[in-house]
Design a protein around this nucleic acid. Structure first.
Lengths: 397, 397
DNA sequence: GATAATACTTTCAGTCTGAACGGAAATAGA
DNA sequence: TCTATTTCCGTTCAGACTGAAAGTATTATC
């Protein structure tokens, strides 16, 4: 009585195609997915009935013959919210189902709050930012500055915002939002953002390091996040490769850099300033950091053979002038596989936008998109021509 | 007119079930695969017609009712050959489609031969070892001591047997065998062997290091080999983490160990002897190697969060007593994720048996097994109760 | 307005599945 | 030995689904 598998699979294929290619004609879907026109027509009709797709009246070409009607995802049918909770700032982006950003917002993190209060504050902030779209809110994804274990979402290793390790934080957040909340490491989300919209959008395999107060890492293999069991994949800062077996994270992260500068009698407040300074006494510090970074980059290349390594986080700005040289040295060490070393294209918003992507994946999954198709959605140019900073003005005060 | 996809998928499911579970009744297949008895019956009938399966007349249980007939793979329908070409020895195992080893053989590598001659010698050796089964030879898989790039099978990085880098080697081998030949890095195959039959058989994610003349590595994620683009994934020996940015491979591999011992005025011929010696002057050498190994193990844990790290190759025997301590130190460095550090269970035959697995995968693929199902075949206990050393006596002299 | 081109829909034959039924084979017990 | 029961397996049948082909709708060109 049942043989529903093919229908579901084809439905997912069609939906994925619309999501990745934007407004598209039925004929084009058929040609590019190797489905027959009849099947496409039937499935599109069903999706239209369900309200998942809408017909756009666009008159795209001026050729002879009947005008093709294009269908697109019913973008306004739902919204998602991506949140990047950092030690100093909380950034969030609300987007519709077509991944078009609607509102963007940045607020200082009230780091002094305890877990329940922080959860409540964040939930209220999200509700407020989502505003009128609250009833259409499909999913919220929150990036946290710590390791998130996949199977039970336990948070660990969050020295910059230890409150979030408390399971209460998540529980209360979900309760007060009355929506499922996705959680992951902020570096993973940052990579997801760059992978979809930024520096890694053409890479199959990519690694991202966020260098700031700590050293975070995200890894994507075949365009899918590789999380590992406890969410610490790629954190090569733990390598005991410094002198006397010290960990590299101690060398490369903000506090480590400041400490070394201080040892030289040069107190700085901001690690990025150390790199901007031209004081010749700082040369060994910079070299030291660079050597550590080189080990980490080599480890990433050898571990995953990524096409791109993206550097993000506060200190990465300061490293920008050195990227070319770093890439060169990397190629000397591992000549076989070259990886481009680039800085994050999405800047501070990588994390929030990656969270949006994660939330969209959940939302799309509920709409019937099969797991393998998720690796290709949403379309990379959803952000094109969209000034995110302008959107932040739209935020409710 | 066509809707063949479900049939192919179900066929693959049934075939995979028989391959993983050995002789099994139709009813059991239906229950464990969630296919209806009708479907199972039809597909089994088809597979019997094709000669891929055979009915075994076993009367397994003594319950009431009609006796269930069990079906199994037609093991004798084809054979595969797995070859591990090392710098000093060539090992090969011939097995049938049920992964039961038929012949095992070890021969010194004629390292002085040039590429064409080596290819011819190896082809002849394989033909001879396969013997009467030659006409049923489905696939040959050869592990080489070098990096193999996936898309064009170019071999590089083979200092211990540079001939195999010559593309002629492969071309002639295939020509003379008149069979498709699979090629991969020997460490990858060793891991495949351990993953299927040995120390990693219960692990989803595992890493293997073969420590010998060089430092080789293989990585499996979710029970599938992770190769990367140029086949050097996991080779953390390249990390410039030694003093003055020297690579770890120089420290940990055989020649490096011998050189350091020689610096102390203690000439050895065999690196394993360095570890066996109780000379107190060697303590710093051992510590030095251990520290390098620890960095490599840490890198592996951080990179992939494996459940098991398998150590193989000549030197690993000598390290066996230290494995417990090494594991302990590893857990101190990366407490969140513990990986068991074990030595290879299959010993010298990991590589050849892994090559058998790879060859079987190709053979199974030709029989219609879908790619995701390959990760679970053949069944892990195909080797149980089979003395491989006894088989080597069967080899044609 | 006829014609041609293109886009979509409907019809139809054919594949495949699961549920239900029925025959076959084996044990248990009278 | 004969029958009831249990279990295994094959067959039948309605339903889901697909692609090819034929049909319909819509548009530009002549």
């Amino acid at each position: 009585m049942e043989a529903r598998a093919p229908r579901r699979a084809n439905r997912s294929t069609v939906l994925a195609h619309v999501l990745t290619h934007g407004p598209v004609t039925r004929t084009a879907i058929g040609q590019e997915t190797d489905l027959s026109p009849a099947t496409v027509s039937r499935i599109v009709e069903q999706l239209l009935d369900e309200g998942l797709l809408v017909e756009t009246d666009g008159t795209p070409t001026a050729t002879r013959g009947r005008r093709a009607t294009r269908v697109a995802i019913a973008a306004g049918r739902g919204v998602v919210c991506g949140v990047d909770v950092g030690g100093s700032n909380v950034r969030m982006v609300v987007a519709d189902l077509a991944a078009t950003p609607l509102v963007s917002r940045t607020v200082p993190t009230p780091a002094q709050y305890d877990a329940p209060r922080l959860a409540q504050w964040l939930a209220d902030l999200i509700r407020q930012t989502v505003g009128d779209n609250l009833d259409r809110l499909d999913c919220v994804a929150v990036g946290l500055p710590g390791a998130v274990r996949e199977h039970d979402r336990a948070v660990s290793n969050a020295p910059n915002l230890p409150q979030v390790e408390d399971p209460e934080f998540l529980r209360l957040l979900e309760k007060r939002l009355s929506t499922g909340v996705e959680v992951d490491n902020d570096s993973n989300y940052a990579l997801l953002g760059e992978l979809r919209f930024g520096a890694a959008r053409n890479a199959q395999t990519a690694v991202m390091f966020t260098i700031g107060a700590g050293l975070g890492a995200g890894v994507a293999i075949d365009r899918r996040l590789f999380r590992g069991r406890s969410g610490m994949v790629g954190e090569f800062g733990h390598l005991p490769a410094g002198p006397l077996g010290t960990s590299l994270e101690q060398i490369i992260s903000g506090p480590g850099i400041l400490a070394r500068a201080r040892d030289l009698g040069l107190p700085f407040d901001n690690p990025a300033d150390v790199f901007r300074s031209t004081d010749s006494r700082l040369v060994p510090v910079k070299q030291y950091v660079e050597q550590a970074l080189l080990i980490i980059l080599t480890a990433a290349v050898v571990a995953y053979e990524p096409e791109v390594i993206v550097l993000g986080g506060g200190i990465s700005h300061a490293l920008k002038p050195d990227l070319g040289r770093l890439g060169g040295r990397l190629r000397e060490i591992v000549p076989v596989t070259a990886a481009a070393v680039q800085s994050a294209e999405l800047g501070d918003l990588s994390g929030a936008l990656g969270a949006v992507v994660a939330a969209l994946h959940t939302a799309y999954g509920r709409l019937g998109l099969a797991e393998p198709d998720l690796a290709h959605v949403p379309q990379p140019d959803a952000l094109a021509g969209c000034d995110l900073h302008a959107l932040s003005a739209n935020a409710i005060a």
